[in-house]
Amino acid sequence: MTAATKPATWPLDIFEAFKRLGIRQVAYVPDAGHTQLIKSCHADKSIQAVSLTTEEEGVAMLAGTWLGGERGALLMQSSGAGNCINMLGIIQECRFPLLMLVTMRGEWGEFNPWQLPMGQSTADILGRAGSVVQHVDDAARVGETVFAGGQMAFSTGRAVAVLIGQRVIGFKDWSK
C-alpha cells in the first residue's frame, strides 16, 4: 500500500455519521476498505451487523429493516454493485430508502485488470437502476457525504449510493 499509509480517520467519520443518522442495522459483504467500520459496527451494542453471502441479500434485508421501523446501511465493494440490480427494483417500486456505501476498485491506480469492468461501470449501473450516486474522492469529505446521503435516502425514500473513491482507500503498488 502506498497512497494510504497514514491512519485513516474517514472510517470513524462514517461511523459517527451512522450514529447521527440512527442506523441500527448494517449489512455487509466484507471489503478491505471497510475493515475498521465493520469492526466498529460489530462492537456497538445498538447496531446489528449482518455478514451477507452476496450483496443483493443486503438490499432485500434493508427493505425489511425499514418495514420494521429501523434504519440500515449496506456496505460493499464496487464489484458487488452488479449483484444488486434486480433487487434494486424493489427499492424503486416501493420507494424504500436505501443507503449504500460502495468502496471503489477498478479506478485510481488499480493494478488488477479484472476489477475494471465493474469498477468503471458502477456509477452508471447504479444510476440506471434508480439510485442517486454520490462519488467522494476527498477523505475529509467522506463522513459528511455519508451523512448527507443518508438524510436524502431516509427523508425522500430513495436509494443513495456513496461511492468512496479508490484514491481515498489507497491502492496496491504493483511496481514492486
Binding site: 449482518v50 432485500a60 434485508m61 434493508l62 425489511g64 418495514l67 420494521g68 421501523g69 433487487m87 424493489i90
Partner: peptide, 22 residues
C-alpha cells in the same frame, strides 16, 4: 402482510431485516 411482486429471491432476507427490527 407485505407482498413482494418482484425481486425473486428477496423474501427470506426481507424477513430477516424485519425480524431484527421487530
Amino acid at each position: 402482510t407485505f407482498y413482494l411482486w418482484g425481486g425473486m429471491g428477496a423474501a427470506a432476507m426481507v424477513g430477516l431485516g424485519l425480524a431484527l427490527a421487530q
